[in-house]
């Protein structure tokens, strides 16, 4: 009954729930959820640039270039924020820059533009074994780095001034968080598509924050909400014959709406 594509989809939803609970939660706590979509557009620009380089100069893996470009966008936003720029404005500027680069190279690579789009628009029920492997490796790396630096990143996003006075390197750990978000977003984009990334990174943490007290329970809550939405989306899609990512997004948004009625 379960074919291999569905099993891969289920595995992917578990991995996405891990990303949602960790860096998804932190981007919500940081108050910069727009960052996630900024990074997604950075990835598109990077993919287009990668293909352009391959066509004109030397072979370059578009996915790698997409990651590098996204990390660059993340660091630029981190630096602007450190220089006391409003994060929302910094993201907006980098968003405009990314889209300009994306449009520029998409128009130059013309017939290959769909390859670039393909890199950031995935389908959770069409994952290859390679996709799953990339996702698995990225998520495990991300989780390890997150656990090691969790407390410092938390201190920095909660109260940068006090963190700095206590000898914590604010620019370093804020940038690290942004790089983790960038890597997580790009890894997920390739597998599940931009809409699902945004829905499953931002919404579960936002809902969980309204229900639970304290960090550990909020993070666990985000994991469960993300998993329920993701698996629910796959399950419903088998009956309704609709894309699972849209259903997962709708379930997550409904859960959030219910939490709004609380308090």
């Amino acid at each position: 009954m379960f074919d291999i594509l569905v099993i891969r989809g289920i595995i992917a939803m578990f991995l996405i729930a891990i990303v949602a609970a960790t860096i998804g939660s932190f981007s919500v706590f940081r108050g910069s959820t727009f960052f996630v979509s900024g990074i997604a557009h950075g990835a598109l620009a990077g993919a287009a640039l990668g293909i352009f380089i391959s066509l004109s100069f030397f072979p370059a893996d578009p996915l790698i270039v997409a990651i590098i470009f996204s990390v660059f966008v993340a660091l630029a936003i981190g630096y602007a924020s450190y220089k006391k720029e409003d994060v929302d404005i910094a993201i907006g500027v980098m968003f405009a820059f990314s889209m300009s680069i994306a449009v520029l190279f998409l128009s130059m690579i013309r017939e290959y533009a769909s390859v670039a789009w393909g890199l950031i628009i995935g389908d959770v029920l069409l994952l290859s074994e390679e996709d799953i492997n990339i996702l698995l490796i990225s998520v495990i790396t991300l989780l390890i780095v997150f656990i090691i630096f969790y407390r410092k990143m938390l201190y920095v996003i909660f109260d940068p001034e006090s963190a700095e006075a206590n000898g914590v390197h604010v620019l370093l750990y804020e940038s690290l968080l942004y790089v983790l978000i960038a890597v997580g977003v790009v890894a997920l984009l390739k597998c599940v598509g931009a809409i699902l990334v945004y829905a499953l990174l931002v919404v579960p943490a936002a809902a969980s924050r309204r229900i639970f007290q304290g960090m550990a329970t909020t993070i666990a809550g985000a994991f469960i909400i993300s998993l329920v939405s993701g698996l629910g989306g796959i399950w419903l899609s088998m009956y309704l014959n609709v894309a699972p990512s849209s259903l997962a997004g709708l379930i997550a948004a409904s859960i959030y709406a219910v939490t709004l009625t609380k308090k």
């Binding site: 919500v28 706590f29 940081r30 108050g31 938390l154 996003i157 909660f158 109260d159 940068p160 001034e161 006090s162 006075a165 206590n166 924050r209 639970f212 007290q213 304290g214 960090m215 909020t218």
Partner: peptide, 15 residues
């Protein structure tokens, strides 16, 4: 150090 106007981020659900 207790800063003057704490730029505390109350989005973070800490206890």
């Amino acid at each position: 150090y207790l800063p003057q106007r704490e730029r505390i981020n109350t989005n973070v659900p800490v206890t």
